[in-house]
Design a protein around this nucleic acid. Structure first.
Length: 291
DNA sequence: AGCATTTGACCATG
DNA sequence: CATGGTCAAATGCT
């Protein structure tokens, strides 16, 4: 009985996390399916229990003028995000890496390691990478990758400089694969492909979620515009930015959002901290729309 | 053989 | 002088 309760709790936790992600993810149709699955699973485990009372009313604040959020912020997702004033490098991106040494973190570009350093006060060395097109195309993009001291599964990736090359690796295509396929899918799709898509997307989105949870940026400043537009494609920013800050994102807006994914090298629309929205979002009302 | 990675040396900065 | 970033020779891999 205790175990069942834990499972329900975990599912609900996951559900909340997904809801946070919905505000970020372009390919909503797939997320809707996942969300429905969560709900079905909870219902099956907890018949008659229904949804927990709207503690599910929460706020997500992602204004560029107060970007950056801590683990605590995401542990208390129902509270308005408190902003840290962190002044630092051009960009600091914290993300989960799949590689054993951080060299394989997928961001769509080809990198070549040119150095590694032990950093004072850090357990793990920092790897230095530059774009492989440095000499062929004069691309000056550089990144630094360091495994987190606190969480070995997390790599802190710092991007410096802008890509001037036009390199988009197959890795990027793979990242977008599931979403692209999703848009191509016919109404009468076969379950096998659905499962495959779902698995791809789950892996992808779980990574995004982890990134999103620990994502932090330096203070938004004019000189950062360059890397902002590089990492977060303009058209997506436009599509996702409400006209005014503090506007409420309705569920219908969420459902009608574009399903296409741009083929941007490092484009990670899921993570855009520049979406200026303070959204009150009720999970229950969202599910009402789904049913 | 050609390319990528490793690693100690070197350099710039505070 | 300590530290972090880069260079480049040595080494490894395919």
């Amino acid at each position: 009985m205790e175990g069942k309760r834990n499972v329900i709790h975990e599912l609900e936790q996951g559900k909340e996390d997904w809801t946070i992600l919905i505000l970020k993810v372009i390919d909503r149709s797939l997320i809707s399916e996942i969300l429905s699955s969560y709900q079905k699973a909870i219902s099956l485990l907890n018949p008659g229990g229904g949804f927990p009372a709207p503690q599910t009313k929460f706020t997500v604040s992602l204004s560029p003028q107060n970007e950056g959020f801590s683990d605590m912020d995401f542990k208390n997702v129902f509270k308005k995000r408190k902003i840290s004033e962190k002044e630092s490098e051009k960009v600091v991106k914290v993300c989960v890496g799949k590689g054993q040494d951080g060299a394989c973190i997928e961001d769509g570009y080809c990198w070549r390691k040119y150095g590694q350093k032990e950093i004072l006060g850090s357990k793990n060395p920092r790897g230095y990478y530059r774009c492989t097109r440095r000499f062929s195309q004069g691309c000056l993009a550089v990144k630094q990758v360091q495994r987190s001291d606190t969480d070995p599964s997390v790599f802190e990736v710092k991007y410096l400089g802008t890509h001037t090359c036009d390199d988009v690796t197959p890795a990027t295509a793979a990242v977008n694969h599931a979403s692209v396929r999703e848009t191509e899918r016919k109404p009468e799709h076969d379950t096998e492909r659905m499962e495959e898509d779902m698995m791809l997307s789950l892996v992808e989105i779980e990574n995004k979620k982890a990134i999103f949870r620990t994502f932090s940026f330096s203070k938004a400043e004019p000189e950062n515009a360059e890397w902002k537009s590089e990492i977060f494609p303009e058209n997506l920013m436009e599509k996702w930015s409400p006209a005014t800050s503090g506007s409420v994102i309705t569920t219908s807006e969420l459902m009608s959002a574009p399903t296409s994914v741009t083929n941007s090298p490092t484009g990670d629309p899921y993570l855009s901290p520049f979406i200026d929205l303070d959204a009150d979002f009720s999970f229950d009302s969202y599910l009402d729309l789904l049913s």
